[in-house]
């Protein structure tokens, strides 16, 4: 039956409930705007730079070189029997995706304040599109990994490649989830801007990026609570064959991410009501 326009778009505005199924269907409805925000961020970011998207490779690459010299070369950090540069690069790849996404999401509401106070759209779009922007950087940085793997003669297992999307998904959700919490706090307390770089630095040492998780011995279960531990460990297992894939660790990461996500959405929805009034 043909619908009249009146039936098609009925909007009811009420005092906001915490969460409703409408939020999810709405996200889907606004997917195009999400795409445009991502597109804008990428375009703007590289428009004023000289070497543009190459930065996405340079950052993890230089970090890898420095870490290889100091941790791999001088400190003789164990690396599960894999050449240290490629070992640390896999870790950095995921870690930088996570940490840079966190930086962007935590700031997304404040940065888009002029839009938030003038137009309606589901606010969840903003943090998600920030993470998508970083996903593009991740994809570019992966090219360097391919080069490294070729150079060191590593061939990933097919089954290993299949698990990568899952790991990427966990990283994605973890950064969105934690980003939501930080973004909501940042609206009210701008302290986040100062605390975050510090927090990320500490976290780098609590995640097996520059060292293998085995180094922590019997305390490694604490590391496992950090979802990035499971991701990085298994990325190495899948790509470099350092160990068999640890499904338990993936499950733990998945659950931890899920919990972070719930807390994040709850926090975000709770503050969403007065974003526009206080940003």
């Amino acid at each position: 039956m043909e619908k009249t326009p009146e039936q098609t778009y009925v909007t009811i505005i009420r005092p906001k409930k915490l969460f409703s199924i409408r939020d999810i269907t709405e996200l889907w409805k606004y997917k195009e705007l999400m795409y445009f925000f991502t597109w804008r961020d990428l375009k703007v970011r590289y428009k004023q730079t000289f070497i543009g998207i190459v930065w996405a490779i340079i950052q993890p690459f230089i970090t890898m070189v420095v870490f290889s010299v100091f941790f791999g070369g001088l400190a003789k950090m164990p690396s599960d029997g894999v050449p240290y540069p490629i070992f640390v690069y896999v870790g950095l790849l995921f870690w930088q995706f996570f940490s840079s996404a966190l930086g962007d999401t935590s700031n997304c509401l404040v940065a888009n304040q002029s839009v938030i106070t003038k137009v309606y759209f589901p606010r969840l779009i903003l943090p998600i599109s920030s993470v998508f922007t970083k996903l593009v950087d991740f994809a570019v940085a992966t090219l360097m990994l391919v080069v490294l793997m070729f150079y060191y003669g590593y061939v990933p297992h097919i089954s290993g490649l299949l698990i990568l999307p899952l790991l990427l998904f966990i990283t994605f959700m973890a950064s969105v989830g934690l980003g939501l919490v930080l973004a909501s706090i940042n609206v009210k307390y701008r302290d986040v801007r100062y605390a975050l770089p510090f927090f990320i630095q500490i976290m780098l040492f609590l995640t097996p990026v520059i060292y293998p998780a085995s180094i922590a011995g019997k305390y490694s279960f604490i590391l496992a609570l950090n979802p990035m531990t499971g991701v990085i460990q298994n990325a190495r297992a899948a790509l470099l064959g350092t160990a068999p894939i640890n499904w338990l660790l993936i499950l733990i990461s998945f659950i931890a991410t899920f919990v972070i996500m719930i807390i994040g959405v709850y926090f975000f929805k709770k503050t969403e009501r007065f974003f526009a009034d206080i940003v």
Partner: peptide, 8 residues
């Protein structure tokens, strides 16, 4: 209160 909007 409540607002009903019947249209885009």
């Amino acid at each position: 209160g409540e607002i009903t909007l019947r249209g885009k």
